[in-house]
Design a protein around this nucleic acid. Sequence first.
DNA 1: ATCCCTTGTCGAATCGGTTCGACCAACATA
DNA 2: TATGTTGGTCGAACCGATTCGACAAGGGAT
Lengths: 342, 342
Amino acid sequence: MNIGEIARRSGVSRSTVSYALSGKRPVSQETRQRIQAVIDELGYRPNATAKALKEGRTRTIALVIPPASRRLTDVQLGFVASVVDAAGRADLDVLLSPSGGEHDRSFERVIGGRRVDGVILMEIRLEDDRVTRLRQTGLPFVTIGRTRHPEDMTWVDIDSDILIYKCVHHLADLGHHRIALVNRSAELVAAGYGPGHRAQAGFTRAIAERGLEGVQTCCADDAQSGVSCVERLLEEHPGLTAIATVNEAATPGLYRAIEHAGLAVPRDFSIAGVAARHLAENLHPPLTAADVPADELGAHAVELLIERIADPATPHRDLLLAPPISLRGTTAPARPRNSSPS
Amino acid sequence: MNIGEIARRSGVSRSTVSYALSGKRPVSQETRQRIQAVIDELGYRPNATAKALKEGRTRTIALVIPPASRRLTDVQLGFVASVVDAAGRADLDVLLSPSGGEHDRSFERVIGGRRVDGVILMEIRLEDDRVTRLRQTGLPFVTIGRTRHPEDMTWVDIDSDILIYKCVHHLADLGHHRIALVNRSAELVAAGYGPGHRAQAGFTRAIAERGLEGVQTCCADDAQSGVSCVERLLEEHPGLTAIATVNEAATPGLYRAIEHAGLAVPRDFSIAGVAARHLAENLHPPLTAADVPADELGAHAVELLIERIADPATPHRDLLLAPPISLRGTTAPARPRNSSPS
DNA sequence: ATCCCTTGTCGAATCGGTTCGACCAACATA
DNA sequence: TATGTTGGTCGAACCGATTCGACAAGGGAT
């Protein structure tokens, strides 16, 4: 059932059917109804591939995610959900493409074959070859996160620097002097993962400004690693009373290890971080954190992308958000602890 | 940069370029190299849309997920990850399509326009109109989960009936007499969600066989609801000493509420369920559960789908798994509790 | 010397749509 | 009456690939 068949059965030419469907030229009431009747009867739907070929656009965007095998964090899932949602509202389909490692075939396939009109990229490194690659091809793209030099590209991001900076200040205001930063995994940070580096920067700045003692550590993205991370931290820095973290996946582990060390959150130990609201609220006690507005960022990324697809010469825009820290149940005034042998 | 451009620049016809690329007809060493040089220079990649139109297949499959706004469970995420992975290995792209509610436009768009060669459907209801719809269109599809009458369709599933049945028997073996089933959300079960109903069936059967006292309850897919669910359960059935659950998202809430009632898991209260391994292992204590082999199911679904796409007349096949229950830290012999006023 | 097969190449048709130019009829305007 | 203008329709070209049939040149078998 192609357009020719519909044309034959309703006794008109293919172009007339096309015009009847698109409304781009007048078609008499009568013919239109006749055509519609045939269409309804056969359940005809125009072939999207043919349309895409002729029109030169696929009405599809690619969403490039970290390798799916590595479990996505709640924030990342939030991005995926909001992008899929926003794209759907704009009648765009979303092609999922894992990138990194063995999955680069997928990325190349999607990018190279003009399968999509535009690309949304997640988990951006400070130097990111996917960005370089996309620049070459001229395919419109928007990143969630940003490279070291984000000047002539379109992106949305949260300001992990400011967020961690504010977390540390918040903890310092409560009287905490020895604070640790629990970052994302060592590999990710080593690979130049932006939020990791920016969190470090904000942490270091705040620590310096308030004359505190700061420790930085990386931690893999899971609860188990969170446990061993805190164990190590408490052993090496007995005076520690607070943690600032950008590693939401490890957070349940942080709770568990702190509790296991005989400390209560927030009475004896405070935690503040950056996380998905859903996750923060569901922890026990609920996590004091800057809630990453994944919905807003994802939707905005799609909007910006649509704009760039419509007109690739559009000036680059961006959106940098620094959501407020929601005070929940994991930060409290510091209480002196017998930490040093005296 | 289309195939015509490549042909012009290498001084041959378009068909020769095509044959040089596909190898379906001999092309002289010399011409081939000349063509390849031009291709490399211009970074040419054949247009996937045009190829799809001519070949009549898109090399893309659709993965229909529950509305992304509703947070996916860990098991569902596991399915998505493994499907994307397996598809990637087979050089297939994956189009993500949320279905249900306002998202049905997306489903229709993807299905109607022949945008994809086949479809994988998740979260199947006992009577599922998406299945009906797909049947009509004749598009090859595989479901993860199955309808009430799964005879002439291709599917993969876990046997929630048997799994819950075994959980209850395991708990009964440990001496528990009053056991509750914590099911998925009331809406989902009311809508005829298969695993929900099958879990009920297995539960009821085991309870009857062992002469136990069983309570069934639904619970929304989040920790908060898990908390209130257990609170209600303990109030209404004070003698309860164990829970069997298929609701992994609520499980952290179950833990919390049990603990909050002054009971220790597994000393005073046992839990056994069906969940993603990752989730089960990361709970504290780790959950005794049948680990849903999402990897295997997802990969198998893709395999079956590829088979059906290659030959739609292929006889229908299926895969029903009942993984063993991994004994972890949440089940222990029942201890008598002062439950009744005496 | 003839016939046939293989290699290498080309032109044209095709996939299923959209869109442009042309055309005719009916009607309004000058 | 001549001259647009508008409504309605058709045929043909086109998007960018694949693929079939044709054909020329060269080599081997008879």
